[in-house]
Every structure is written in C-alpha cells, then in structure tokens.
C-alpha cells in the first residue's frame, strides 16, 4: 500500500520530534497522538482527461491518474490543556492549516488520532457563512445552527452586531457584498457568541484592523478563562506573541519546537531570517 510505504520512508525522521510527556496535574482538552495526514490532490490537466479515458477509469475502478498524495502532517504529537492558547507557526506549506482541519475532524487521519473534549470549531479565512443572505440573517441562522435557542439568539444578536462593528446599513446587505475583513469579523463574532471548548482560528483575524485585533484578543482571553483551548494560526507573529501562552513550530509537517512563545518565536525568527 502506497500510504504504508510513504509512512515507512519518513518513519526514521519522525523520531527527531520532541517527546510528549503528559502533565498529570493539568486537565487535557486536545490530545494529538502521532498524527499523520495524507490527502489526495488532483493536479488538473495532465492531458489524459478525455471522456473515453475517464469512462475506462470508472470501469476499471481506478483513481484519476493526476492524483497525487500529499503527506502534509507527519507524526505530530502534543497535548493541549484547558486554558491554553496555542500559536502555530511555520512557513507556507508546513501543515499548519491541515493540522487545524484534522483537529476539527475535517480531515481523516491516515495514522494516529486526535482526541478532544467536545466539538472543536474551526474559523477559516473564507469569509461568508451564507453568501446570498444578509448579515442579520447570517447571525440568526448561525446562532440557531450552533444550537442556541431562539431566545438566546435574540439575546446575543446585539452583542454580535456590536462586536462585528460593521459599517452602518451593511447588516442588511447580503454577505457577498462584504469586504474580506468585514466578513471575517462577522464570522468570528457569530462563532464567539457561543462558548467553545476548542476554538481553532486559521488566519481569520488577519484581515481585521488594529481595533478588531484588540477586541478579538479580549474575546480569546475570555474563552481561555472559560477553560477552553484556543489554537491560532497566524503569519503575524506579534498577534501570536500577544495572545498565546505556548507556541508550536511546524516544519515540513513535523513539530520542530513546542514551548514558551518567546523561546520558540525567537528560534523561528532566527531560522527564517525575518
């Protein structure tokens, strides 16, 4: 099996990753245990896309020939405890977003496992929830979808509008007309209306302005106090330094460092030459 072979080839390198020792005095909320993520990508083109060859493939039950396997996360292990805000840094393509998706359960592990308490929520960059609906509809539906009762939804509506801080009038426009920053703000505001055990934020705060960053930091602190955990992927290291109490450095799908923000960010900055 191709997957097994790919795993074997990289097995020896994986040992270089830092050892994980459970801390019995703290309560874990996410345990990532030797996680490998391999996904298929379709590199378009490839020349053999004619209808006849496609039909033959279906008959022979083969995969598309342009399919390539990407081994994005290679044996990552760590434990996140209640109250942690963990920043994840790494260069483009180091597996940060893939790792978050896997924690959220959106990508199946090829090997290893992710254990969580409660259902993690992932906030990504794509801004709209329901593009064709107005911002206010999105708030109501978003809250109801997360399981808030109609009364709770009404009660939190104003707070969400205030938190998202949209330009006047925009709340009644379809979300497709929003700028990426506005969309991200509204999305974050909706998601933050409920307490989450685990909140995964993938660059969702990057498009916000300074004012919004301050408010979202306050919100993240609040969430940590509720004894949940927050994961933050950002290329802006200042945001991570201000918000997180721990940083994981991913390099080519492996954990290179895991620890104190100052220490890890210092080493990361040095290595990437920023």
């Amino acid at each position: 099996m191709a997957v097994a072979k790919a795993l074997k080839e990289r097995g020896s390198v994986a040992e270089a990753q830092p050892e994980v020792r459970p801390d019995p005095t703290r309560e874990p909320i996410v345990v990532v245990d030797g996680l490998h993520i391999i996904y298929r990508v379709y590199s378009g083109g490839g020349g053999k896309g004619s209808a006849a060859t496609a039909l033959m493939r279906i008959i022979k039950r083969e995969n598309r020939p342009q399919t390539k396997e990407v081994h994005a996360v290679k044996g990552v292990s760590f434990i996140a405890y209640r109250g942690d805000a963990i920043g994840i840094v790494g260069t483009n393509g180091s597996g940060k977003s893939t790792l978050l998706k896997a924690i959220a359960g959106l990508l199946p592990p090829a090997r290893g496992a992710v254990y969580t308490d409660g259902q993690p929520s992932l906030l990504g960059v794509n801004a709209a929830l329901m593009k064709d609906l107005s911002g206010s509809r999105n708030i109501t539906l978003g809250c109801l979808a997360m399981g808030l009762s109609p009364d709770e939804t009404k009660a939190s509506y104003d707070a969400i509008v205030k938190f998202a801080d949209l330009k006047p009038g925009f709340i009644d426009y379809p979300m497709s007309t929003y700028s990426s920053g506005m969309g991200a703000r509204l999305r974050f505001a909706i998601a933050a209306a409920r307490t989450h055990d685990v909140l995964l934020i993938d660059e969702a705060l990057a498009t916000g302005d300074a004012k919004f960053k301050r408010r979202s930091k306050a919100k993240i602190d609040e969430l940590r106090e509720d004894a949940g955990a927050v994961f933050l992927v950002a290329h802006n290291l200042d945001v991570i330094e201000e918000t997180c109490n721990r940083v994981i450095w991913l390099d080519d799908g492996r954990v290179k460092m895991d620890g104190d923000p100052e220490e890890v960010l210092g080493a990361y900055t040095e290595a990437t030459g920023k």
Binding site: G11, A14, E19, V20, V31, D33, G34, H36, G75, S77
Partner: peptide
C-alpha cells in the same frame, strides 16, 4: 512513531 509511546497518549 515518535519518542512518546503512542499507547500512553491514547
């Protein structure tokens, strides 16, 4: 696969 025994984490 890594330093920590997988079973212990599970």
């Amino acid at each position: 696969w890594n330093g920590a025994g997988s079973a212990s984490l599970a």
